[in-house]
C-alpha cells in the first residue's frame, strides 16, 4: 500500500514509516477495531433497531444538530474575527490572538463547570439571558453555547492564515479596475477562503459532535430532549448494555471518519488548485 512514488536521496523512509504504521496500528487501529468486533456480536436487525430507536435518534439529532448550528454560528463570527486579526491592528490584539486557542488548551471539564456557572439562571450572564426569555443552560441553547466555545479555535485558525496570504496586489488591481470593497470581498476574497471555510467547518463539526466533558454539565440530560449521544453511550454502558453502547459509538465513529476523510480531501483539492493557478 505504502509505495514510494519518487526517488529521493533522503534516508529513513522505511524506518520512519514502519514505526508510524506500527504505532498507529497499536494505539489507534487495534483499539478501534474493538468497536467493530463488539458490534458484530449482534445481528444487523438488532443493530438497526438500536440505532434507530426514538431515543437514539433524538440524541443523534441533538449532537449533530447542535454541532451544526454551533459550527455555523462560529463560521459567521469566525470569519469576522479572523478578518479583524489578519487585517486590522488595535490595542491588545496580540493577547486576543493568543487567547483564541484557549478553548483548545482548556480541559473540557473546566470549560463545562465554568460555562454552567456563567449561563445558569443565577449565573453572571444567565441572569440576563433568562430575563429576556432565553434559557441558556440545561437546554438545546446550552449545548450550542458549549459547542460554540469548543469549536471556535478550529474555525478561526483555519481561516486566518488564508486571509493573511491573499496577495494584496490582486485587491489593488481589482480596485484600480473600479471594483468596490464589497465586490472585492465577494469576488476575490470569499472564493479564496472558501476551501478553508469548508475545512474549518468540518473540523469544528467533527470535534463538537463527540464533545462530552463540557456539554454534560450544561445539557439537561433529559432523554429525548437534551441528552447528547456520548451521554447515551455512557448510559447504555451503565446499564450493562455493551452492544447498545458500541452500536451507537460505531455510528458516530463512522460519521467522524467520513468527515475527516472529506476534510483531508478538501485540503488536498485546495492545495492542488492553488498549485495550478
Amino acid at each position: 500500500m505504502f509505495l514510494l512514488k519518487q526517488k529521493t536521496t533522503l534516508p529513513g523512509f522505511h524506518l520512519a514509516l514502519g514505526y508510524t504504521v506500527f504505532y498507529v496500528s497499536l494505539i489507534v487501529l487495534i483499539p478501534l477495531s474493538m468497536l467493530f468486533i463488539k458490534t458484530s456480536t449482534i445481528s444487523f436487525a438488532d443493530f438497526w433497531s438500536i440505532v434507530t430507536a426514538p431515543r437514539t435518534l433524538a440524541a443523534y439529532r441533538l449532537s449533530f444538530g447542535a454541532a451544526f448550528i454551533a459550527s455555523f454560528i462560529n463560521i459567521f463570527f469566525g470569519v469576522i474575527i479572523a478578518w479583524v486579526l489578519a487585517r486590522y491592528s488595535f490595542p491588545g490584539k496580540k493577547i486576543v490572538d493568543a487567547l483564541i486557542d484557549f478553548p483548545f488548551a482548556l480541559p473540557t471539564a473546566v470549560a463545562g463547570i465554568a460555562l454552567t456557572t456563567l449561563y445558569s439562571s443565577n449565573g453572571l450572564l444567565g441572569q440576563f439571558l433568562y430575563k429576556i426569555g432565553i434559557q441558556s443552560a440545561y437546554s438545546w441553547t446550552g449545548v450550542v453555547l458549549a459547542l460554540i466555545f469548543i469549536g471556535l479555535p478550529f474555525i478561526v485558525r483555519t481561516i486566518e492564515p488564508v486571509l493573511q496570504e491573499i496577495d494584496p496586489e490582486i485587491e489593488d488591481a481589482a480596485s484600480s479596475l473600479g471594483a468596490g470593497r464589497l465586490q472585492i470581498f465577494f469576488r476575490i476574497i470569499f472564493p479564496a477562503v472558501l476551501p478553508s471555510l469548508v475545512t474549518g467547518f468540518s473540523l469544528a463539526f467533527a470535534r463538537t459532535i463527540g464533545e462530552y466533558g463540557s456539554v454534560v454539565f450544561i445539557a439537561g440530560n433529559m432523554p429525548g430532549k437534551t441528552e447528547i449521544a456520548p451521554l447515551l453511550i455512557i448510559t447504555k454502558l451503565e446499564q450493562y448494555d455493551y452492544s447498545g453502547a458500541t452500536a451507537i459509538a460505531l455510528v458516530m465513529l463512522i460519521v467522524s471518519f467520513i468527515l475527516l476523510a472529506l476534510t483531508n480531501l478538501a485540503q488536498w483539492w485546495a492545495s492542488k488548485r492553488i498549485g495550478m493557478s
Binding site: 498507529v24 473540523l203 456520548p230 467522524s256
Partner: peptide
C-alpha cells in the same frame, strides 16, 4: 508515497472520536 491520505486520516482519528 501512496496511501498518504489514508495515513493522515488515521492519525487524525483520535482528535475527532468522541472521548467517551
Amino acid at each position: 508515497f501512496r496511501g498518504k491520505n489514508i495515513l493522515l486520516t488515521l492519525i487524525d482519528v483520535p482528535l475527532s472520536v468522541s472521548p467517551v
